[in-house]
Design a protein around this nucleic acid. Structure first.
Length: 1018
RNA sequence: GGGCUUUUAGCUCAGUUGGCUAGAGCGCAGCAUUCACAUUGCUGAGGUCACAGGUUCGAGCCCUGUAAAGCCCACCA
């Protein structure tokens, strides 16, 4: 294949992905395996061991839905540990599960970051030779999808209440099926090297099965209970939420002061609504005028008055004023609470008051919940509609009266208010209270209000019977394991944050009142009395509305599970963990996900993972932050600053996007992202493409001329051929390749060119030794970065190594004469190292190069290169010289100086031996020796006698620059001297450092004296 | 109220047990054009490392405090 002039990602990406997929290279090489699959009573691990060496010979599992047909033989926990030894020495495993994107959605920028991160890890480990398994997923996204579906339902003029749950479920299933697929195509476009045949959908049967098993175990263990508790309820969607799903927003509100009059007082006795069930009729209009008794009330009620009521200034002690933001709930009041330390109300504790507009009698109680500093210091208690009041109610055993129905309208209230929405009811109540003289003041306040995170509706605390998980024990176990440092967190501080969260965790409401989800496998006996909580039994037959058991009919609970309840099984279900299976992929090596779902998801996966398997579900957690827009603002549709990853992929290529989004990003941080970083990624791909094109050209040229530089090649084993000790890494080149040659069915000899001869090379000049050193350093840096999830640093290192070192210096130096074997070897090394981050371009190049075989995606991570360290270090001197020549020439007046002025050297073997190289790199017209007499302009180098052949008048023009240089070197010298003058430094600093400082001083002094000599000449 | 994080060049970020003469990308300025690459090459300008103390021979880094920005949890009758 020929290299086009520039890299056009669109011409390659789709084909490359299809080829990878067709070759099945994304499946792990080691299968999970029943300990005794054939049921012959013999441990099959020996056979599995054989099988694992023949990669792809055995499907990991038949499909995403069917659990493997394990024999009933179970394996104890201890035995599982022993199984680890079954792995071959070099066959370590590496597993990541994808946080499942919404099955019917499109990928957003966060998914882009997720894939870039996870896929670089997986590809890196695949290159390293680990049996790597990246398991893709799709989320039914219970509530999210439901909201979308319900909207389309409403648009077609229907409502959910026209259908039963089973009907709705199948309708949404079809809806999702139609939409599904986009997200999977987009994952492919991003290069996600996941094992597609193992894709897990959150409603797959094995998922539901596992969730039911866990639920049953919890039920039997007494961790599941049904409780009437206050839940956050969205009246629009008519479902409850977990605490974590609630969005709190600070809003302006009003705090009203309402008077409750003591019963038994003259006034109360005269009132005629002692019976709460009595119809209110139009009584509001004929309420007795109370203002006569309360001369100050009228003034307080003037419109718009803002006033805080702190003192007992309301008149005689036959009433009490409470402060509330929700006057409409007064019909549900079952007490008034005051603080026992509040002198103003001490004598009222134990007395009874009547609720305005209702007349029902409620007690005044003492509870610390009442804050004397807030409002009037007295608070009405509505246990059925406020979380705090609910707790007060529990403490004092108060009744709970529900006055707001699930649809957000009033119930169990006087007729005049019944059926009103809470909003309308509030207006009416305030109007009536005002007219009847109960409203004593109002005040604007700032308070936070719970909203539905999807539709923004104000959530109503609602009394409902729901399924709860008693989390205390689960959290305790999780905390123990976390404190035992069994999971390493990136960033590290999240470990403590998570532990603190678990310590304060409240019981987990797992019921949702939406049809789209996993049905809760509970059935209840039909009882005559609807008020009593019925008997519940566990049963998996949730496809049936009612079941018979021992002659008794049970009816299915209509609720579904909170998605987090099933999601918390994700590492278990994706790896198909079962107690019977040998499964080296659980626990996962790392859980990579967004920092924003640390509590909602990560915490629950840990609790459930431990509960189900006894092990933490993953060894490490890497959390990424939010991707913000270029100005550091959160992306949102309303702001119009949303970046669609697919647009960038289409425009610049998948690799450019991946590199762009990983740059400048670190664990747990919300960081900005802009198209510029993608552009620079695109540029790197093009650079790499042209590097490869250039090298291919040189390789081709070599073939045509028949001159093979490889005759200079040395056997890699003879490392001391040239006098200098040659260094080598710990790995022997070639060995690594041999160890993984079984990546497909071909014979190893047909595979890649792996004979030691063909990959051997010898270095012929300093630049070659130097690039070997730099590439080794780069590789070690990447290894360290990947081990610590420092993706941005790894990419940065590669970027600089490829561009600033490999292209700008090494390749430039190769323009004089080519070491083709080394060019091939180093290019391969660069491509492989970059592959985890830029899978497509590196593969496109790999497939285009004439000498490479197989897929780069399954190549072997490179071994260290062998080189001469002294020679490598000398090249640094050469770089310094060339840079100084270039810099000085640029500073001189005039243009095209590089072509005008030659370079003289005096007794300098480095320059003499490399004259051609220096000339090529600096473009000077000539380099020649000087016989002891300085001539032209001396370069500011301490250890080299070099002069530019510059006429005297140009040298004079350099006067100012030279003076500036002398001053700046002088300042550096002063600083160094000051350091050495400090006796404490000489005494206490490490000897090597002091020595280094001395050397630096010496060098600076030498340089400055030379510059001064030059200066004097001008 | 409790906790976490951030503050380094115009912008976005590195700076791993203190050794720094503080780096990168983008942007900016100048120069270069038969060269693998203009998606290019070369050169350069640009920083009181938020502020104030402290520890140390030595602080961008460690400690204390302050300020600003952002996030999380709780409370908000």
């Amino acid at each position: 294949m020929k290299f086009a002039k520039s890299y056009e990602p669109g011409n390659y990406e789709a084909d490359i992905y299809a080829a990878w997929e067709a070759a099945g290279i994304f499946s792990p090489s080691i299968p999970t395996y029943p300990v005794d699959a054939d049921g012959d009573g013999v441990d099959d691990r020996a056979e599995a061991k054989k099988a694992s060496r023949n990669i792809h010979s055995r499907p990991l599992r038949d499909n995403g839905n069917a659990p493997s047909e394990a024999s009933p033989m179970t394996m104890g926990r201890g035995e599982r540990v022993a199984n680890e030894s079954f792995l071959m020495p070099n066959e370590s495993t590496y597993s990541i599960v994808m946080p499942p994107p919404n099955a019917n959605g499109n990928l957003h920028i966060g998914h882009g970051l997720t894939v870039a991160t996870e896929d670089s890890l997986i590809r890196y480990h695949r290159l390293k030779g680990d049996s790597s398994w990246y398991i893709p997923g799709a989320d039914h996204a219970g509530f999210e999808t439901w909201v979308v579906y319900e909207r389309t339902l409403e648009q077609s003029g229907h409502t959910r209440f026209e259908y039963d749950r089973d009907e709705l479920y199948s309708r949404v299933w079809n809806f999702v099926s139609e939409q599904r697929g986009n997200m999977e195509l987009q994952l492919r476009a991003l290069g996600a090297s996941c094992s597609w045949k193992d894709l897990t959908f959150t409603l797959d049967e094995n998922v539901i099965d596992r969730v039911y098993t866990t639920f049953e175990k919890m039920w039997n263990d007494g961790l599941i209970y049904r409780g009437e508790k206050l839940v956050n309820f969205c009246p629009k969607h008519r479902t409850a939420f977990a605490d974590i799903e609630v969005e709190h927003q600070d809003e302006k509100g009003t705090l009203w002061d309402i008077e409750y009059r003591l019963s038994g007082s003259e006034l109360a006795a005269n009132e005629h609504f002692a019976n709460p069930s009595e119809s209110r009729g139009d009584e509001s209009s004929r309420v007795p005028d109370s203002t006569g008794r309360r001369p100050d009330s009228a003034t307080r009620l003037s419109p718009g008055v803002q006033q805080t009521v702190h003192e007992r200034e309301f008149g005689p002690a036959d009433s009490i004023v409470v402060s509330t933001t929700r006057p409409e709930t007064l019909f549900g009041d079952t007490a008034i609470a005051v603080n026992s330390n509040d002198e103003r109300y001490k004598d009222l504790i134990g007395k009874k008051v009547r609720i305005p507009l209702s007349g029902r009698e409620i007690p005044i109680i003492a509870d610390e919940h009442a804050d004397p500093e807030y409002g009037s210091g007295a608070v009405k208690i509505t246990p059925a509609h406020d979380f705090d009041d609910f707790e007060v109610g529990e403490r004092h055993d108060l009744p709970r009266i529900q006055v707001i129905a699930e649809d957000g309208t009033m119930i169990n209230v006087p007729e005049a208010y019944a059926g009103l929405t809470t909003e309308k009811c509030r207006k009416q109540v305030l109007k009536d209270l005002k007219e009847q003289g109960y409203l004593k003041g109002e005040k604007k306040i700032q308070h936070s209000v719970a909203h539905c995170y999807k539709c923004g509706t104000v959530l109503e605390p609602m009394l409902k019977s729901q399924w709860f998980v008693d989390v205390e024990k689960l959290a305790k176990v999780a905390i123990d394991h976390l404190e035992n440092n069994e999971i390493k967190f990136y960033p590290a501080n999240k470990q403590k944050v998570l532990i603190d969260y678990l310590k304060n965790l409240k019981d987990w409401n797992i019921s949702r009142q939406i049809p789209w989800g996993i049905a809760i496998p509970m059935f209840h006996k039909v009882t005559e009395d609807a008020t009593d909580e019925p008997d519940w039994i566990f049963d998996r037959r949730t496809n049936l509305k009612q079941i018979e058991k021992a002659g008794v009919t049970y009816v299915r609970d209509e609720d579904t599970f909170d998605t987090w309840f099933s999601s918390s099984h994700w590492p278990i279900v994706c790896t198909d963990w079962t107690p019977e299976n040998y499964n080296p992929y659980y626990p996962l090596n790392v859980m990579e996900t967004g920092a924003d779902i640390l509590f909602a998801w990560v915490a629950r996966m840990i609790m459930v993972g431990l509960y189900v398997t006894g092990e933490v579900p993953f060894k490490e957690v890497y959390l990424h932050g939010l991707v913000l827009d270029a100005h550091g603002k959160k992306m949102s549709k309303s702001k119009g600053n949303v970046i669609n990853p697919m647009d960038l992929v289409a425009k610049y290529g998948s690799d450019a996007f991946r590199i762009g989004i990983l740059r400048g990003r670190s664990a747990g941080m919300n960081q900005a992202f802009s198209e510029n970083s993608v552009i620079s990624g695109r540029n790197l791909m093009n650079k790499l493409w042209n590097i490869s094109r250039f090298i291919q050209g040189m390789v081709d040229g070599e073939g045509e001329s028949g001159e093979n530089i490889s005759k200079h090649s040395i056997d890699t084993d003879s490392q001391n051929h040239n006098g200098h000790g040659r260094v080598s890494g710990t790995e022997i080149p070639g060995r690594d390749r041999l160890s993984r040659c079984d990546f497909d069915d071909r014979e190893s000899s047909e595979l890649r060119n792996i004979s030691p001869d063909s990959i051997s090379y010898s270095t012929l000049n300093m630049g070659e030794d130097w690039i070997c050193r730099e590439l080794n350093d780069c590789k070690h840096q990447i290894e360290a970065d990947m081990a610590n999830y420092r993706f941005a640093e790894a990419v940065e290192t590669l970027y600089q190594t490829i561009w600033d070192k490999y292209a700008d210096w090494f390749l430039e130096s190769q323009k004089i004469y080519q070491n083709t074997n080394l060019l091939k070897t180093t290019l391969e090394m660069i491509l492989i190292m970059l592959h985890p981050f830029a899978p497509f371009a590196t593969e496109a190049i790999w497939q285009t190069l004439s000498w490479t075989e197989g897929f780069i995606a399954t190549a072997n991570w490179p071994a260290d290169l062998v080189y001469d360290p002294i020679s490598a270090e000398n090249f640094i001197s050469l770089i310094t010289i060339v840079s100084e020549v270039r810099g000085t020439l640029q500073t001189l007046p005039g243009t095209n100086n590089a072509k005008k002025y030659g370079l003289y050297y005096d007794k300098d073997s480095l320059v003499e031996d490399n004259a051609l190289l220096i000339q090529t790199l600096s473009h000077v017209p000539f380099i020649s020796s000087l016989d002891g007499t300085p001539q032209g302009l001396r370069l500011a180098l301490a250890n080299h006698e070099l002069y530019l052949d510059v006429p005297e008048k140009v040298v004079k023009a350099y006067h100012d620059s030279l003076e500036e240089k002398i001053l700046s070197v002088g300042r550096e010298l002063d600083a160094l001297n000051a350091r050495m003058m400090n006796p404490n430094y000489v005494d206490k600093a490490p000897a090597a450092l002091v020595r280094e400082t001395r050397d630096q001083i010496e060098e600076k002094e030498k340089l400055i004296s030379r510059l001064k000599a030059q200066f004097a000449l001008i």
